[in-house]
Amino acid sequence: MLLEVRSLCLSYGKREVVHNLSFTVDKGECLCVVGGNGSGKSTLLRTLLGLQKATCGEVVLGEGLSHKGIGYLPQAMAAQADFPALAREVIRSGLLGSKGLRPWYTNAERQYADNAAEVMRITNLLNRPFRDLSGGQQRRVLLARAFCATRSLLLLDEPAAGLDAASAEELSLCLERIRKEEGVAILLVTHDPADVLRHADRILTLSTDSTLWDIEEVVRT
C-alpha cells in the first residue's frame, strides 16, 4: 500500500467539499478520480500532497514515501506565455525535493532528469524554451518534471485538459509507459471516459454533494 486515506473531510470555511472519504492507493495501480467541476478533485490532490489541511480524518503515507516524494502535475496553470525557461530547467526542478540544500545538480541527477525526458519522448526538446513548445509538448515536459519528483506515485490533475486528440494520445502513451515500464502508481483526475477505460484499475467518483462518493473496481475481460 502506498497511501491510505481514512475518513477524510475537506472544507473551505463552513462549506464541506468532501465528507468522510476513505480509500487506498496500491503500488503500481491507476486510480482515476472523476466528478463534475467543483466536486473537490483538485482539493483532494492538494490535501494528499500536504499543501492543504483536512478538517478531519488523515492521510497515511506508505513506508518510504513522504509528501516530497510524490510527483505532482497541477491543474493547467495559467502558464505565462513569455516565461523564459528551457524545458531542461523545468524538468530538473522536479528534483528539488530530493536534492536538499546542495546548490547544484550532480551528474546522477542530471542523468535522472534526462531519463525522465526519454520516458516522455521529449529528449529532442530539452534545449528548447518552454514558451515556444506546443500545449501537448508543454504538458509532457511538466509530466517529466513530476516524474522526476517520485519513484512510486504521481498525482495528475487533468493532464489532458485542452489538448487536441493527437496530443492527448501521446500523453496517454506516456502514462502507459510510466505504469508498465517504470511501475509508478498514478492517481489520475480526468473528465475523459476514454482515459478512464484505458488506464483505470479503480475509479473514485466524487460529486458536488460532499457525502456522495463511490469507489469501484474496473473489471477487465
Binding site: 516530497k68 510524490i70 505532482y72 497541477p74 496553470m77 526542478s93 525535493g97 546548490p103
Partner: peptide, 23 residues
Amino acid sequence: YGLLYHRIFAVTFDEPFARATGV
C-alpha cells in the same frame, strides 16, 4: 541568490509545484 537559485526558479515558475516538493 546563488545558494537558492534552483528554488527561486521553482517558486517563480510554478509555486504550487514548488511547495509540493517541499520549498
